[in-house]
Design a protein around this nucleic acid. Structure first.
Length: 532
RNA sequence: GCGCCAGUAGCUCAACUGGAUAGAGCACCGGCCUUCUAAGCCGGCGGUUCGGGGUUCAAGUCCCUGCUGGCGUACCA
């Protein structure tokens, strides 16, 4: 059991008979408030009908704090119990990191729970845009963090290869190849021309009876191949690419419809079949089979979610801002099918690119888009991913292209990477002792050393929290803080050229910091360079 | 109209899920390189957490209400 757990147990042992409380330890904001703090006395004040400070004082006297490596314990403020941890504990943390290596910070918080995260899932009708770039960075990082925290995380991309947009793509490509005007509701980007040239090289033209569905599908597969390639170079991996066409092959949508019929969750009106979403919390009922007898997108989508739930305990959808209204109907559908509470939807908000202080104008209609590929070519993979992961997913993001391209101290990515680089630089030096878990770490007592270690110790907790809340941006903040602690240490404490015992202990400490920085950055999909 | 997301320093954002004195970066001002990379460190400036009620020992955080901004509101996906 870790220190917090053992301390909680000790406190529970001194609670009055018949009284129980959950004891939570937090790290106070100010150093003069100690290293760990609990508010348990305040929580019990009402129940015990006594002032919180009085209760805290009583508890304080009943625990042998020194047994836990606590140097000092005191009652503070309205009734907090604050503990000041001695250096011995922190030296143990460093040893722990060296012993566990990159596995340090892993936990079983998720208890093996299967979490399937669906993200990007862009239509195969064109290149990936910047919102997909944001979703890709976030989704991929969520999966990595989930695994770190003991969940079985899976990443999945839903390929929408069976809808009517595929036919529209086919019509657009055929029109282009014939030198005709692309239809108004077609696709107008430059890539349409490229696909047309790939399918009809050297001035060949499509046959008169060319099937738009067939060529649409070929074009879609070319787009998909390109999307896969771009995502791979962006460092984003999927465990599965699920094609909508697979679903139709297995007749899953029709089975889902039958199931909904049996549950009496659908009805007919004006020749169409409606899902009675309002009975399950949606804003309005939705058509799932049109009056022409064709299923709408909703039916296969429900079938797909049911399929995912057969493979996972919880499913997470990362959706673009244009799919806001989709949430209610899918939640309602799953509720109707007995899967209430198993779908978590995260809306990835809009990305506004800014250059020279101006918003970069993007128009889908005219095909004027900044693609993921262009963005990565422009600013690099590390910068792009870091920028996307910095902000909370649910808020729109201004992406400052000038700042992103700047190779300077203004660019926050380098701040974290530079900490890692500096460590590698020291460890590379001839005069640097070999870090070792067996080293005597008692020389580590300086405040810069202890502050650094305190932060390293938080890594596992931060990973667990980021995983549980599906919020990888927490980790970005954590790593930036960690880098700060390291840079302060670097400025204050020399590793090489000091007294040998200190030198060895510090080399071991920075090795520990290197491990956590490298592992943390890899959870973000950002590289940890040895030289910059 | 209805629904979602947001509103915290001049700007971009934090705040460990209800805790103590609301913190960083950028910008602006001033310091620190003959020793491990100055892509760094130190100091200064900067706040009615959009307004108004409420819940309680305690509210930026939860509830109600109003205001502002973004997005969405198809028998498209």
């Amino acid at each position: 059991m870790d220190l917090k757990g053992r301390l909680s147990q000790a406190l529970k042992n001194v609670l009055p008979d018949g009284v129980d409380a959950e004891i939570l330890w937090t790290v106070p904001k100010h150093v003069d408030q100690g290293d760990l703090s609990t508010n348990v006395a305040m929580l019990l004040a009402k129940q015990l009908k006594r002032p919180p400070r009085e209760i805290a004082t009583e508890f304080l006297g009943q625990v042998e704090w020194a047994d836990f490596g606590i140097e000092r314990a005191e009652v503070a403020g309205p009734g907090f119990i604050n503990l000041f941890i001695g250096p011995g504990h922190y030296q143990g943390v460093v040893r722990d990191i060296l012993n566990h290596g990159r596995d340090y910070g892993s936990s079983n918080e998720g208890n093996g729970k299967k979490v399937l995260v669906e993200f990007v899932s862009a239509n195969p009708t064109g290149p990936l845009n910047v919102v997909s770039a944001r979703a890709a960075a976030i989704g991929d990082s969520i999966v990595r963090v989930l695994r770190k925290a003991g969940y079985e995380g899976m990443g999945e991309f839903y390929v929408n290869d069976a809808g009517r947009q595929v036919r529209r793509l086919g019509l657009s490509v055929l029109a282009h190849a014939r030198g005709q005007e692309v239809p108004e509701d077609g696709y107008h980007g430059e890539y349409v021309r490229e696909i047309a040239e790939a399918l009809f090289p050297d001035g060949t033209t499509p046959p008169q009876d060319a099937d738009p569905d067939e060529f649409g599908h070929e074009a879609a597969m070319l787009n998909l191949a390109k999307q896969k390639e771009v995502l791979a170079s962006y460092g984003v991996e999927f465990d599965r690419w699920f094609h909508e066409s697979e679903l139709h092959g297995s007749d899953a949508p029709m089975q889902t419809l039958e199931k909904l019929r049996e549950l009496d969750a659908v009805y007919e009106k004006e020749g169409a079949v409606w899902f009675a979403g309002t009975r399950f919390g949606d804003q309005e009922d939705r058509v799932i089979v049109t009056s022409e007898g064709r299923p709408t997108y909703l039916l296969p989508d429900i079938a797909y979610h049911v399929d995912k739930l057969s493979r996972a305990d919880v499913i997470v959808d990362l959706l673009g801002p244009d799919h806001h209204d989709y949430v209610g109907r899918m939640q309602a559908a799953l509720k109707a099918l007995g899967h209430d509470g198993k779908l978590e939807v995260i809306i990835v908000q809009q990305v506004h690119l800014k250059e020279g202080g101006e918003k970069v104008k993007m128009s889908k209609r005219a095909g004027k888009l900044v693609t993921l590929e262009e963005l990565v070519d422009d600013v690099g993979r590390d910068v792009a991913r870091y920028f996307f992961l910095q902000r909370r997913t649910s808020t729109p993001l201004d992406f400052d292209l000038d700042l992103a391209k700047e190779q300077s101290d203004r660019n926050p990515v380098y701040y974290v990477q530079y900490a890692h680089t500096r460590i590698c630089g020291i460890l590379r030096q001839d005069g640097c002792p070999e870090p070792s878990a067996d080293a005597d770490l008692s020389p580590l007592t300086a405040s810069e050393e202890i502050e650094l270690i305190k932060h390293l110790e938080q890594f596992g907790l931060q990973c667990a929290r980021a995983a549980e809340a599906y919020e990888p941006q927490r980790l970005v903040g954590y790593l930036a803080d960690l880098a700060t602690r390291f840079h302060k240490f670097y400025t204050a404490c020399h590793v090489i050229g000091v007294e040998p015992a200190t030198s060895l202990a510090r080399a071991t400490l920075i090795q520990a910091a290197e491990i956590v920085l490298a592992e943390g950055l890899s959870l973000l999909g950002v590289s940890a360079p040895e030289r910059m």
